[in-house]
């Protein structure tokens, strides 16, 4: 290295970048929020943590409000309402739910999905935030709850990947835009999903063994000699 000083400057710069990257939402909130607002959010986070609600999403919500230039007096009620939805999602998914799943659940509730519906998502395999997101999209599009849950169940059983899962509401919306009623749109997509897994295996290959194995043909060949 030609210049040890330059190396040191580069290392410091890299270190600073890494430090910023590793900063938590709480640390950033402490650094950027007005002290009174931070104290209120921190007190709320402590209170919620006791009931199993993670604090990272709460500090993120406060930072979001700041970034969107929301007045300070409207920040705390919004964070409190968000904490309530996270708690509702935790009630639906259980104590072991991950933070991404709780955030997705809180979003779904914000979009009008009842927590009972979230609870109805199949629980025999890990519930994915993407599945929750897709369920909310489908219900928002006007798809009946039972059909939406049916499709989600099918997609989860087939272990449909995230991209494929996210494609479901997009396909439904496209059909609805084309004038198809929501429940019919959902049925078409469900059918397509079934076909995607190779549902139509079709007849065994090759078809039959005629005419060599045709019993009557063989009899006649014998008779004709």
């Amino acid at each position: 290295m030609k210049s040890p000083a330059l190396t040191l400057v580069c290392l410091m710069a890299f270190g600073a970048t890494s430090l910023i990257a590793q900063e938590t939402a709480r640390e950033r909130a402490q650094r950027t929020l007005p002290p009174q607002v931070f104290d209120d959010v921190a007190a709320l986070a402590t209170e919620m943590r006791a009931s199993g609600i993670p604090d990272e999403p709460l500090f993120n919500k406060a930072l979001e409000g700041m970034a969107k230039r929301v007045p300070s007096d409207r920040l705390i009620p919004a964070v409190r309402a968000y904490a309530g939805r996270l708690g509702e999602a935790r009630g639906a998914f259980g104590a072991g739910a991950s933070v991404p799943l709780l955030v997705a659940g809180a979003d779904a509730i914000q979009r009008g999905v009842p927590s009972e519906t979230l609870r109805s998502l199949p629980s025999d395999r890990p519930r994915s935030p993407v599945a929750v997101l897709v369920l909310a999209e489908l219900l928002e599009s006007g798809v009946p709850v039972d059909r939406a849950l049916d499709v989600m169940r099918q997609a989860m059983e087939q272990r449909t990947q995230d991209a494929g899962m996210l494609d479901i509401p997009a396909r439904v919306r496209r059909l609805i835009r084309a004038g198809v009623p929501p429940h019919e749109a959902m049925e078409r997509v469900r059918r397509a999903l079934q076909r995607d897994r190779g549902g139509n295996v079709g007849p065994a290959l090759p078809p039959g063994t005629e005419p060599l194995s045709d019993q009557r043909l063989r009899d006649r060949l014998r008779r004709i000699g």
Binding site: E64, P77, P129, V130, A170
Partner: peptide, 19 residues
Amino acid sequence: PDVVPDEWGRMSATLVIEG
């Protein structure tokens, strides 16, 4: 897709990355 309303009347997009 996957747009969610925030608490202040605006919308945010959603990005999910599973671990």
